[in-house]
Simulated assay, not measured.
Amino acid sequence: MPAHQPTALNQGPGGTQELLTVPQVMARLQLGRSAVYDLLRTRQLVSITLGRSRRIPTGALTDFIHARLDQEAA
């Protein structure tokens, strides 16, 4: 299985991918909590679970935004 290589756009300090909380994603997308959880539930936005917490990789958020832009352009 090929390793996921994050692009410079997706990297935080030190070259590692940053994990965002749901409130951080809410602020970046300017959406409410329910809307973000709907995106996670329908797998339009990818997340990982750490204990009882959801974290969204910055790369997943970037991919989601690019996919939506491509849909709008079509």
Rank of each mutant, 00 (worst) to 15 (best):
L50I: 14
S47P: 00
R41E: 09
S34T: 10
M1P: 09
T62G: 00
L61G: 01
D63Y: 03
S34F: 02
M1V: 08
A74R: 11
T21P: 02
Q30G: 02
R28Y: 09
Q71R: 07
R41W: 01
G15P: 06
T49V: 14
M26N: 11
I48Y: 10
G32A: 02
Q44T: 03
I65W: 02
Q5W: 09
V46T: 10
H66M: 10
R68D: 02
D63F: 01
R43I: 03
Q5K: 11
Y37T: 02
V25A: 06
A8V: 12
A60L: 06
D70I: 02
I56N: 09
G15H: 07
Q30W: 03
G15L: 01
L29A: 02
L69S: 09
E18M: 11
Y37G: 03
Q44V: 00
R54S: 10
T62W: 01
V46N: 06
R33E: 08
R43V: 03
L31V: 10
E72K: 09
Q24S: 04
R33Q: 11
L31G: 00
P2D: 13
L45R: 04
V46R: 15
A73D: 13
R43M: 00
E18A: 14
L19G: 02
R54I: 13
A3Q: 15
P23R: 05
I48E: 15
L45W: 11
T7N: 12
A67S: 11
E18G: 01
L31S: 03
R55Y: 12
P13A: 13
V46E: 15
S47G: 13
L29N: 08
P2F: 10
T42D: 11
A67N: 13
S53V: 08
Y37K: 07
A74D: 06
L61R: 05
L31Y: 04
Q5E: 14
T21F: 07
M1S: 13
Y37Q: 01
G59I: 06
S34I: 05
P57N: 04
A3V: 13
T42G: 04
P13I: 11
I48M: 12
T62I: 08
L29C: 04
I48C: 10
V46S: 11
T58W: 09
D63H: 05
